[in-house]
Protein backbone atom coordinates (compact mmCIF):
# COMPACT_ATOMS: atom_id res chain seq x y z
CA UNK A 1 0.00 0.00 0.00
CA UNK A 2 1.25 3.48 -0.90
CA UNK A 3 0.28 6.32 1.42
CA UNK A 4 1.06 9.94 0.67
CA UNK A 5 0.68 12.90 2.98
CA UNK A 6 0.25 16.11 0.98
CA UNK A 7 1.35 19.36 2.55
CA UNK A 8 4.02 22.03 2.31
CA UNK A 9 5.21 21.57 5.89
CA UNK A 10 2.71 23.35 8.09
CA UNK A 11 2.17 22.07 11.63
CA UNK A 12 -0.94 20.09 10.67
CA UNK A 13 0.86 18.35 7.81
CA UNK A 14 3.59 17.20 10.17
CA UNK A 15 0.94 16.03 12.65
CA UNK A 16 -0.87 14.02 9.99
CA UNK A 17 2.33 12.35 8.82
CA UNK A 18 3.16 11.31 12.37
CA UNK A 19 -0.38 10.06 12.92
CA UNK A 20 -0.34 7.98 9.74
CA UNK A 21 3.01 6.41 10.63
CA UNK A 22 1.71 5.61 14.10
CA UNK A 23 -1.41 3.89 12.75
CA UNK A 24 0.57 1.96 10.13
CA UNK A 25 2.94 0.70 12.83
CA UNK A 26 0.08 -0.28 15.13
CA UNK A 27 -1.70 -2.17 12.39
CA UNK A 28 1.53 -3.74 11.25
CA UNK A 29 0.43 -2.82 7.74
CA UNK A 30 2.81 -3.09 4.84
CA UNK A 31 2.79 0.45 3.62
CA UNK A 32 5.11 3.18 2.49
CA UNK A 33 4.43 6.66 3.84
CA UNK A 34 5.66 9.45 1.64
CA UNK A 35 5.48 13.20 2.17
CA UNK A 36 4.62 15.37 -0.83
CA UNK A 37 5.66 18.97 -0.22
CA UNK A 38 6.00 20.56 -3.65
CA UNK A 39 2.82 22.34 -4.61
CA UNK A 40 3.09 21.33 -8.26
CA UNK A 41 2.90 17.71 -7.16
CA UNK A 42 0.12 18.40 -4.65
CA UNK A 43 -1.83 20.09 -7.45
CA UNK A 44 -1.84 16.85 -9.42
CA UNK A 45 -4.22 15.48 -6.82
CA UNK A 46 -6.49 18.53 -7.10
CA UNK A 47 -6.08 19.43 -3.44
CA UNK A 48 -5.80 23.09 -2.42
CA UNK A 49 -6.47 22.74 1.29
CA UNK A 50 -3.74 20.94 3.13
CA UNK A 51 -3.00 18.53 4.66
CA UNK A 52 -4.26 15.87 2.28
CA UNK A 53 -4.17 12.11 2.64
CA UNK A 54 -3.80 9.96 -0.45
CA UNK A 55 -3.93 6.16 -0.32
CA UNK A 56 -3.05 4.21 -3.44
CA UNK A 57 -3.34 7.40 -5.50
CA UNK A 58 -6.88 8.21 -4.31
CA UNK A 59 -7.61 11.32 -2.22
CA UNK A 60 -9.11 10.15 1.05
CA UNK A 61 -9.02 13.29 3.14
CA UNK A 62 -8.19 16.99 2.81
CA UNK A 63 -8.13 20.23 4.71
CA UNK A 64 -7.62 19.04 8.27
CA UNK A 65 -6.05 16.36 10.43
CA UNK A 66 -8.55 13.50 10.69
CA UNK A 67 -9.06 11.69 13.98
CA UNK A 68 -6.89 8.66 14.69
CA UNK A 69 -9.95 6.41 14.43
CA UNK A 70 -10.64 7.83 10.96
CA UNK A 71 -7.10 7.21 9.75
CA UNK A 72 -7.32 3.70 11.14
CA UNK A 73 -10.63 3.13 9.33
CA UNK A 74 -9.29 4.48 6.01
CA UNK A 75 -6.17 2.31 6.11
CA UNK A 76 -8.03 -0.80 7.28
CA UNK A 77 -10.58 -0.41 4.48
CA UNK A 78 -7.81 -0.17 1.91
CA UNK A 79 -6.01 -3.15 3.40
CA UNK A 80 -9.19 -5.23 3.14
CA UNK A 81 -9.51 -4.29 -0.53
CA UNK A 82 -6.01 -5.50 -1.29
CA UNK A 83 -6.63 -8.99 0.07
Amino acid sequence: MKIKVLGPGCANCVNLEALVKEVVAELGAEATVQKVTDFKDIAKYGIISTPGLVINEVVKWSGSVPSKAKVNELITTELAKGE
Binding site: F39, A43, V59
Partner: peptide
Amino acid sequence: QIKLSDVELPDLTWKDRSDYAFGY
Protein backbone atom coordinates in the same frame (compact mmCIF):
# COMPACT_ATOMS: atom_id res chain seq x y z
CA GLN B 1 1.39 27.09 -15.51
CA ILE B 2 0.17 24.90 -12.68
CA LYS B 3 -2.55 22.48 -13.67
CA LEU B 4 -4.84 21.06 -11.04
CA SER B 5 -6.57 17.77 -11.47
CA ASP B 6 -10.27 17.63 -10.82
CA VAL B 7 -10.73 15.89 -7.54
CA GLU B 8 -13.69 13.96 -6.21
CA LEU B 9 -13.52 14.66 -2.52
CA PRO B 10 -14.58 11.70 -0.40
CA ASP B 11 -18.04 11.91 1.17
CA LEU B 12 -18.09 12.79 4.82
CA THR B 13 -20.40 11.18 7.34
CA TRP B 14 -22.03 13.24 10.10
CA LYS B 15 -19.61 11.65 12.50
CA ASP B 16 -16.68 12.85 10.36
CA ARG B 17 -18.11 16.37 10.35
CA SER B 18 -18.66 16.34 14.09
CA ASP B 19 -15.15 14.97 14.72
CA TYR B 20 -13.73 17.66 12.46
CA ALA B 21 -15.69 20.38 14.27
CA PHE B 22 -14.69 19.07 17.67
CA GLY B 23 -11.03 18.85 16.65
CA TYR B 24 -11.20 22.39 15.30
